[in-house]
Design a protein around this nucleic acid. Structure first.
Lengths: 231, 231
DNA sequence: TCGAATCATTACAGAATTTTTACAAAATTA
DNA sequence: TAATTTTGTAAAAATTCTGTAATGATTCGA
């Protein structure tokens, strides 16, 4: 389920929006000022932020620019009041992805929300590689194809996800919880044993000797890591 | 420098817009009716088209639909006459990327122009061939024709759209949501199951054995992809 | 206005994947 | 070494995903 963070100090708008979006089966988070909104954006990693410009403590422009400056590319849908410091919108390229002018029509806002959420997946994969090679196994994440030498290797989405994330932190140990967070996502929390099972499956598929893994290495008490040059 | 084509018959709006956009360092082209506007869109390949609906010779809807039918994905910002929601919605249905209602506020228009241009790179990636061959089926996207061996193959617009988009990302997996976004468009949101049905229809039409597809391949848990050389 | 074509929804069976569970094996600790 | 914690993994159970047929809605053109 997609998560939407609304940052808006006008409580009537906030609760109205929240109700509608909740009814549309989105998971809604809220904040009523810029500072707590910023914190929520960073910590909760929503899939979309609906951001009013005129909010206490930190205005929407600043908030949005701050996120972008940090490389956060969560889609932002701005709520601007008509005649609200138009020069600012005009003069600054603040990095919002879309705008709605208050008072807005609900269908229009929903349409824009849908569009932004659909475009999302593109951006999400930040420093994740498109393809990697692990020993004689090569992976292509765009095609979702895996080959072992010339043979096609059948990997499940989770297996692809795990390898992709581990590859993005090549050589670093990653905890099971971190993997669940990144590969599974916020709203699903299987046990950490589930991770072990997937790792075991992966070893069968990509290691020469699954009982003595060279690439998918266990770090006892911590988690797993992907190594390419174990001697 | 980004090039913007304005198609608008109201000369006062046209020249006003042109001045502002030129001042903002865009390269501005203009046309005052649908036919010359269409020609300019095709020949000049602008980065963005600002398109009024009520224009002589060919209205904005038709023009936009015509471009999209040919696979032209230049972002289109519609100018809709002050008025009803239905107009707006329809504007987005036909493949426009955004719209502004007249009389519009300049800052808002500029903001939307920036947003659309920023989105561009994602779009531009489309390297759509004029025609492709899938097994013994050949498709011509320019002419909107499909043949199976010598026989004419009747494909619906959606079917064409799906194939065209998949072909533009040959070999890459595309999610159902992405397909809905690109083929169905802004304001339509059928369920993802709808995509499955169209894929099933397509398989019947282009695969030798629809139950074991060689070209229109499912990637379980992710989406579909078009492959040309599965052995 | 009617009919044909297209499109969307729904339902459900069968696949495929994911999660849980259980227990053995290994590593760590004291 | 014994106790404890952690990991590996097989197998069962649960869940999710896909294919597809049937049905209804919508659109478009004659």
């Amino acid at each position: 389920m997609k998560r939407i963070l609304i940052i808006e100090d006008d409580v009537s708008i906030l609760s109205g929006l929240k109700d509608v979006l909740t009814f549309k089966s989105y998971d809604v988070l809220t904040a009523e000022d810029g500072e707590s909104g910023y914190a929520a954006a960073v910590e909760e990693k929503p899939d979309l932020i609906i951001l009013d410009i005129m909010i206490p403590k930190m205005d929407g422009f600043t908030l949005c620019r701050k996120l972008r400056a940090e490389g956060n590319s969560t889609p932002v849908l701005m709520l601007t009041a008509k005649g609200e410091e138009p020069d600012k919108i005009q003069g600054l390229d603040i990095g919002a992805d879309d705008y709605v002018t208050k008072p807005f029509s609900l269908p229009e806002l929903l349409a824009r929300v849908r569009v932004l959420l659909r475009r999302m997946p593109e951006r999400a994969k930040k420093n994740l590689p498109d393809s990697i090679k692990i020993g004689d196994v090569s992976l292509n994440f765009k095609k979702y194809e895996a080959h072992k030498r010339d043979m096609v290797l059948n990997l499940s989405p989770k297996e692809f996800g795990i390898l992709r994330f581990l590859a993005s932190r090549m050589g670093e140990v990653v905890t099971r919880d971190k993997l669940l967070d990144e590969v599974w996502g916020y709203d699903l929390y299987p046990t950490t044993r589930t991770v072990d099972n997937h790792i075991a499956q992966l070893r069968i598929k990509i290691e020469k000797n699954p009982a003595d893994p060279r690439y998918l290495v266990t770090v006892h008490g911590i988690g797993y890591k992907l190594e390419l040059d174990k001697e």
